[in-house]
Design a protein around this nucleic acid. Structure first.
Lengths: 184, 207
DNA sequence: AGCTTACTTTGGAAAGC
DNA sequence: GCTTTAAAAAGTAAGCT
């Protein structure tokens, strides 16, 4: 029984450092589509089209990249940011070390679920399910250390992991738990 | 030492002052919400337990009071929505919800999500509907829960739709607008829920 | 009655208030 | 705690035709 949970990485958040004492005002001046509102937020926002993502650049040289659909794409985006900033005559680190901070993935168990029964089965003390506020049941796993949002449709969202495998393991673990509880 | 003694007095004064404020706030809100004394007492017990476990740190007394009231209503089977609670609190719905989740977790209050059926008596009373309609609405809700048509749906929306259907089946029809008003949901939500219930439970609603 | 846009929840980093 | 970024899930809400 090879199940296809249709696991798909939807967003990768990564951080890195491309330099020091970066002149954000200069970047904002030279790059028309850059968003920089220091009064509102200290980071400058730069968006890339391919891969489609957004990067937050700080004066310290630290960079946060969000929106990529894969870890590799996140690295590609960082390289583009380095190239752009470097082309402005600003000293940059050519190949900075990129650290993945969070991976958001979606998956599908393929069947409708009874969230009330699942809340009891997994233990009310391990789960948060308040349909008045949000339709998804919130399940926090300790291993892998991720948070999963489980919906009545059987679809879910896994977030908080650092690797694609964290998401994969979380989905399989939940599928096993629900199955052993006879709720899948 | 005298200093130590005076310090204790100061602390106990502040503690008592805060407790008195919390309890008066609890009474004020409970009265405004028309809640019975038993619910106020349950909320007071929850509040005191929260204090004993220092769960107030970083939170406002009013927020904890509101969350305790929200929890007490659910525990008593006479739920109030977070919006209703927030209507009479200085704290907003989002914060009350967070505080509720926190104290429920820390105090080990194992509460299942509110069943739409718990809202039926109050909503029907507000609409001047008979016990027969209430019975039918609850019957519809029970079937909906068995058929798993309520997962992830707002309890008030499901309750409103069931009451809307029941009022028609019992010949005491109320408009979607009237039901939406007392349930605190939009007519669109009642429409979506009632269509789903009527279709999947095979209920014919001839207008 | 639709359609569109938008807000609810989750996680994480960044610098500063 | 907040601010900003991105994206998914599903329910509810609000504005417009």
């Amino acid at each position: 029984m090879t199940r296809d949970f249709k696991i798909k990485i939807e967003n990768v958040v990564a951080s890195t450092q491309i330099g020091e004492n970066i002149d954000l005002n200069k970047i904002a001046r030279e790059i028309p589509d850059a968003d920089y509102k220091p009064k509102q937020f200290p980071g400058l926002v730069l968006r890339t089209k391919e891969p489609k993502a957004a990067a937050l650049i700080f004066r310290s040289g630290k960079v946060v990249c969000t929106g990529s659909k894969s870890v590799e794409d996140a690295r590609r985006v960082v390289k583009q940011i380095v190239k752009i900033v470097g082309s402005l005559g600003i000293p940059v680190i050519e190949e900075p070390e990129v650290k993945v901070q969070n991976i958001v993935a979606s998956a599908d168990l393929g069947t409708d679920l009874n969230l009330n029964a699942i809340a009891i089965g997994l233990g009310l003390e391990n789960v948060e399910y308040e349909p008045e506020q949000f339709p998804g049941l919130v399940y926090r796993l300790r291993d892998p250390r991720v948070v999963v949002l489980i919906f009545g449709s059987g679809k879910m969202v896994v977030t908080g992991g650092k690797t694609p495998d964290d998401a994969r393991r979380a989905v399989e673990k939940i599928a096993e738990e629900l199955e052993s509880l006879g709720l899948l | 030492r005298l200093r130590k003694w005076q310090r204790r007095i100061r602390i106990s004064n502040a503690t008592e002052r805060n407790l008195a404020f919390a309890l008066s706030e609890l009474d004020r809100m409970a009265s405004a919400l028309g809640l019975p004394k038993s619910v106020r007492e349950t909320a007071a017990v929850i509040y005191r337990k929260a204090i004993e476990k220092n769960l107030i740190r970083g939170r406002s007394i009013e927020g904890v009071v509101a969350a305790a009231l929200y929890a007490a209503c659910r525990q008593a089977g006479v739920p109030r929505t977070l919006d209703e609670i927030a209507q009479y609190s200085r704290v907003d719905r989002k914060e009350i919800g967070r505080t509720y989740r926190f104290i429920a977790r820390e105090l080990g209050l194992k509460l299942m999500p509110t069943s739409p059926a718990d809202y039926v008596p109050r909503f029907c009373a507000a609409l001047g509907l008979s016990g027969e309609v209430q019975r039918k609405a609850i019957e519809i809700i029970k079937k909906a829960e068995e058929r798993e048509l309520t997962s992830g749906r707002g309890p008030t929306g499901v309750a409103a739709a069931a009451i809307y259907i029941a009022s028609i089946l019992c010949g005491e029809r109320r408009t979607q607008r009237e039901v939406a008003e007392v349930a605190g949901v939009t007519e669109v939500t009642i429409r979506n829920r009632y269509k789903e219930l009527a279709e999947k439970l095979g209920i014919d609603i001839i207008l």
